[in-house]
Design a binder for these strands. Sequence first.
DNA 1: ATCATAGTCGTCTGCCTGACGATAAACAGA
DNA 2: TCTGTTTATCGTCAGGCAGACGACTATGAT
Lengths: 248, 248
Amino acid sequence: MSPYDPSAFPPFAVTVDLVVLTVRRHALCALVVRRGEQPFQGRWALPGGFVRGDEDLGAAAARELAEETGLCAHDPAAPGVDNGAHLEQLATYGDPQRDPRMRVVSVAHLVLAPDLPAPRAGGDANSARWAPVDELLESADQASAGLAFDHARILADGVERARSKIEYSSLATAFCPPEFTVGELRRVYEAVWGVALDPRNFHRKVTGTPGFLVPAGGTTTRQGGRPAQLFRAGGATLLNPPMLRPEV
Amino acid sequence: MSPYDPSAFPPFAVTVDLVVLTVRRHALCALVVRRGEQPFQGRWALPGGFVRGDEDLGAAAARELAEETGLCAHDPAAPGVDNGAHLEQLATYGDPQRDPRMRVVSVAHLVLAPDLPAPRAGGDANSARWAPVDELLESADQASAGLAFDHARILADGVERARSKIEYSSLATAFCPPEFTVGELRRVYEAVWGVALDPRNFHRKVTGTPGFLVPAGGTTTRQGGRPAQLFRAGGATLLNPPMLRPEV
DNA sequence: ATCATAGTCGTCTGCCTGACGATAAACAGA
DNA sequence: TCTGTTTATCGTCAGGCAGACGACTATGAT
C-alpha cells in the first residue's frame, strides 16, 4: 500500500471552535475570547485552535476547553468520568473564504456547562468573558461589531442545537450543578428558551418522567422560599415524551 | 496581516463521504461503491472524495453525489432548485488512525433520495449498488466483511439521523417521488423505522398536520386496491406535533 | 359474482398538557 | 410574634391527541 501523493489533494488546516454555553443570572451566555492578532484583532471570537497531528477531533475540543476554562469535558461518545461539562460535535464549517489567510476547516463543538468559575484567559487571547448570546447575536447584524470570522453563524447554530436538544433529552441537567432543585432546572429551561414556564406543570412533568431525576436526599433553600428537594440527573438521556417548548 | 506559518500546524486531507439513503422494496437501502485500490481493495465503502481547494463542503458533497448517481442535490442551507434529493451535513470523522495512509478528516453528508435509477459506477469505483442498511450493518460485526474504514460507524450515524429526523420534520417526503399517496409515505416510515403503522391513524395524522401535505389533484392505483389521492410535499418543514415512533 | 387489496372516515378511551386553585415551609421586616 | 413575600408542591378539571379498532368504498383478479 502506498501513501497518498501529497500533490493529489490540497492541504487544509483543521481547527476546532467551541460554543461553550452556560446559564448565568437567568440568561444564556456563551464564552468568547478577545483576539490578540490579525485578522479581526481586538474583536471577540469563539475559543478554538488547531487540531494536532495525532489528536482526535473530540480530544482537541476537550483540550481547548480545558485550556480556556479548566473544565473537564465529558464526551458521551468516549467513556470517562462525568465530572465536567457535556461536549458534543456541532458541525463543520469550511467555506473557502472563511479565513482570509488560508484554507481552514473548523469542526465546531458544543459545550454545555454549569455556571462555574470566572473564565480564565489563556493562549493567544487577551481576555475572555461570558456574554449573553442575545447580545452577541444582535450585534452580529451591525457590520464590524459582531464576532470574528463566521463565528456568529456557528454560535447561532450551537444555540439552536441546545434549544432543541433540551426538548427531547435530559441535557438541561448539564447546565446545573451535580445536585439541583426542580426550580433551578426550570430556570435553565426558561433561560435557554427565553420563555416563562408554569412551575406546577413543570414540576409534575419532570418528576413524572422516569429516569430524568433521582432524589438526592436533601433539601436546600438557596433560592429562598420553602425548602426544595435536591435531585441528581437520572440515567435516562432521551425523554419520552419530550418537554414541549411553548408555541411562539 | 500575515499568512499562517505553514509549519505551525499539521496538514490534513479533507474529504466528503456520502450516506445516500433510499427506500427500495420496503427496505431502507444505502449506496455503496466497491473500492478499486488499497487499502480495503475490493471492499464496499461509502462514496466520497477529496474536497477541492476552492470548494465549499456542501458543494463538494453535491458534486460527488452527482458524479456517483446523477442526482441533483438540494441543500436547504443553500438556495437552489429542489429537483433532486435532500442533502445535509451529518458529522465529521477525524480519528488519526482512520486512514492508514495519512491524516484524513472526512466530513460526512447525509442524502435522502427517492427510489430512482440504478446507480452508475463512476470515478475510482469498480461498481456501485444499493444495499439494505440492515445487511451492511450486520456484516460490520464480522471482521473483514463490513464496510471499509470507519464507514460502518458513519452509516449507522446517518441511519440514526434519518430515523429521528423524519419524526419531527417532513423529510420523509424526500424519499418519495414528487407526487405520492398517503400509503406510499406510510411505507417510507415503515421501512425507515422497521415497524408497522396503523394505516388509519397514519392517514388521520398526516392529513391533519397543516402544511405537511397538499393535494395534487389526481389519484393513482399504482399500489393496487382503491384509488388513492395524490399529494405533494407542503411548505412545512417542521412537524408540530411530531410523528411518534412506536415504542420498542 | 366473489375475493383480495388498499384507502378513507368514524368512534371510543386513556393519557398528557395547559390553566388554574390551594396549601406548605422558609425568611424578612414590622 | 405576626404578617407578608417567596418558592415549592399537590390537586383538579377540561381539551386535545394518539392508539385500538369497526365500517365502508373503490379498484383489480379469479
